[in-house]
Amino acid sequence: MINRLSKAEPENFLMLDPDCVLDAMLDQGFQCDGRLLALNSYENRVYQLGIEDGPPLVVKFYRPRRWTDAQILEEHSFVQDLFLSEVPVVPALLNDNGVGLRFFKGFRFAIFEKQGGRAPELERVGTLERLGRYIGRIHAVGASSKYCHRPMIDRETLGSRALAFLLENDCIPSDLLPAYESTARQMLECVDTLYRQAGEVQVIRLHGDCHLGNVLWTESGSHPGPHFVDFDDSRMGPAIQDLWMLLSGNRVERQNQLCDLLAGYEDFADFDPRQLQLIEPLRSLRLIHYSFWLAQRWGDPAFKLAFPWFNSQRYWQDRVLEMREQIAAMEEPSLQI
């Protein structure tokens, strides 16, 4: 059963109104007090709900037909492993059968305790080292087993397939198509070159989307410091995937930030320096995949409201320039430890 992608599942979120959300929670034994707050999420639908005689909870309804049940359960299992290893994450609450994936009127959803916090202040001394320490702990657990159902973070999945979708579905203005396609293919050739130079690097279960928006920092509680949330994009990939998105600024600044991260990271996990050659390739793949993600979701009214510039001429012109900058970046020496 867990491998299915239900044919009864809705095509989209049009039937997911507030009454449906409240009824789904009641069906699972949670008596809501009527307070419902939509949280910032485009891929899924996420709500904070007031609970009678208890603290508020967060419920996430998974985008229909994105993940299979098995893929969602693999993510839940990984986060539960992290939680049991005392890594500050927020696992799905389990039902009476010990499972976090729930069903209501074809929708699939999970329920979580609310986790407060703010964005980490990276300029504060010691913050990056602490982040690196916890990411090292995540990766130590992640390396202990493998995903069997979730896709990989690699050139084929995030690059070639994403580009093929954009080209085959007429997403790019016709007058910009030759420039976009040729530049994208040149960028992917550079990605291939650097992947070959890095050689065979270990791939592990990891967060997959470890940017500052998915890290909540607290100063009190049982685990003061960073809390890692939203493992929805968790996949198998190289460890550097969870580190490079925390780097910003000029080369010297990024070099110093990397050293701070790894000072904490290597307290718990070994780091293969060959992976440093993958920072710009992974950034390049993310650029193409982001446009693919928007194009694939363009039929969702929420995306048209949130990203009205997506199908504009200017958007695709900027992407061509961005890819050319990435080609130049991949020709420069990689960061060093």
Rank of each mutant, 00 (worst) to 15 (best):
R4F: 02
L5V: 12
K7Y: 00
C20W: 03
R35T: 07
R35H: 11
A38T: 04
L39F: 09
G54N: 09
P55K: 14
D69R: 13
Q80W: 06
V87G: 03
V89G: 03
P91F: 11
N95C: 09
N97R: 12
L101Q: 09
L101C: 02
F103D: 11
F109I: 01
P120D: 14
I138T: 09
A143C: 13
S145W: 05
S145M: 00
I172A: 10
D175L: 08
L176Y: 13
A179W: 04
R185C: 08
T193Q: 10
R205F: 08
G208R: 11
D209Q: 12
L216G: 06
S222F: 08
P224C: 12
S234F: 06
A239F: 01
L243W: 05
M245N: 10
N250T: 08
E253M: 15
E253D: 14
D267L: 15
D272F: 01
D272G: 07
P273L: 01
R283P: 06
S284Q: 07
R286H: 09
L287Q: 09
Y290T: 11
Y290F: 15
F292N: 04
A295C: 12
D300C: 03
A302T: 09
A306Q: 14
V320Y: 07
Q326H: 09
M330E: 01
P333T: 02
P333A: 07
